[in-house]
Simulated scan of single mutants.
Amino acid sequence: MIGRLNGLVAEKQPPHLLLEVSGIGYEVQMPMTSFYQMPEVGESVTVHTHFVVREDAQLLYGFAQKIERELFRQIIKANGVGPKLGLAILSGLSAAEFVNIVANNDANALVKLPGIGLKTAERLIIELKDRLKNFTLNQQSELGDLSLPQENLGSTFVEAIDVEQDAIDALLALGYKQAQATKVVKKVKLPEMDSEALIKAALKSMI
């Protein structure tokens, strides 16, 4: 199992990161809360990974912090929840926000995420409530550090051609519908925004 990678950021196309390690490029899918923490292209970074082997694919999911990876692993243990849905959950919510939602039985907050209806949200909360007690009690300070930064409008993508389309593509990859993604991106877009800032604003507006 591949549990950690240390290398240079070769490409950034949210929610995918291409990490070059000893001449090999690893394509890693990341929740946006982790993606926001990645450095510029060409800089080195350590990514904590979760490796999934399927009949038709081998997939790497990456996280900026070990605790994010552990939360992801707990989420995908829930009945009917796969890695793609886990990625969407941790893209729309920080680790701390998700743990608090589960602790407060706030199913309505989860149904705003793609792929989650009320029944799925209620089942998630029931299944994860006991499992996440230790996160709430013992690791809250670490979780708090994972909240999204309030302001970050700096340029991140060296080769971004169309900021608006980049943002829409990222939302589609996370499970949002074309019409929904297009509508919210156009609604929140500001002239000074790069792709990362636009994705962040779009996700925030849907929660």
Rank of each mutant, 00 (worst) to 15 (best):
H16E: 05
N138M: 15
E142W: 03
V81A: 05
D169G: 06
F72S: 01
E27C: 00
V21I: 09
V28E: 10
L90E: 01
G115L: 10
F35P: 12
L143V: 02
V9R: 00
A160N: 11
K133W: 06
N152D: 15
L5F: 11
G3L: 06
A96S: 13
G154P: 01
A160M: 09
D106C: 00
I67A: 03
K186M: 02
F72E: 00
L143T: 05
Y26K: 05
F157R: 11
L85E: 11
K119P: 01
A95I: 02
K129Q: 07
Y36A: 12
E20I: 05
K133N: 08
Y36V: 12
R69N: 03
I125E: 08
S205I: 02
G154K: 15
V99T: 07
E192T: 13
K66R: 11
G62I: 11
R73S: 01
L146Q: 02
F51N: 00
G7K: 04
I199A: 00
F157G: 08
D162P: 12
L60S: 04
Y176G: 08
L19R: 06
D162W: 13
Q29A: 08
Q74L: 06
E40I: 02
L93H: 03
Q150S: 06
I89T: 03
M193E: 02
Y36G: 08
V9S: 07
A201P: 03
I24E: 05
F51Y: 15
S205L: 06
I24L: 14
L5C: 04
E159M: 10
M38Y: 07
K12I: 01
V184F: 09
P39A: 06
Q37I: 07
A202S: 14
L143I: 03
I207L: 15
D194N: 15
E122I: 08
S205R: 00
V81D: 07
E20Q: 06
A57P: 08
K204V: 11
T120L: 01
I168H: 04
V52S: 12
S34C: 03
M206P: 03
E142H: 02
R4Q: 14
L203H: 04
L19G: 11
G7N: 02
F135S: 01
E55D: 14
Y61H: 06
D145W: 10
P15A: 01
S195A: 14
K84Y: 10
R123Q: 11
F135A: 06
K66Q: 12
I116V: 12
M193L: 13
M38I: 07
A103Y: 03
R54W: 05
A197Q: 14
L113W: 09
G23N: 00
V41I: 15
G144Q: 13
T136K: 13
Q58H: 13
L143F: 06
G117W: 09
K129A: 09
V188W: 02
R73I: 09
Y36I: 12
L172R: 10
L146E: 02
N100S: 14
L59G: 03
T182E: 14
E43G: 05
K77M: 05
Q29Y: 09
E43N: 10
H50W: 08
T182F: 11
G80D: 03
L153G: 14
D169L: 07
S22Y: 13
E68H: 02
K119R: 12
V185Y: 15
Q65V: 02
G7R: 01
H16V: 08
E97R: 10
K204S: 15
L153N: 15
F35C: 01
Q65D: 11
K112D: 04
F157V: 15
V184D: 09
V47Y: 10
L71H: 06
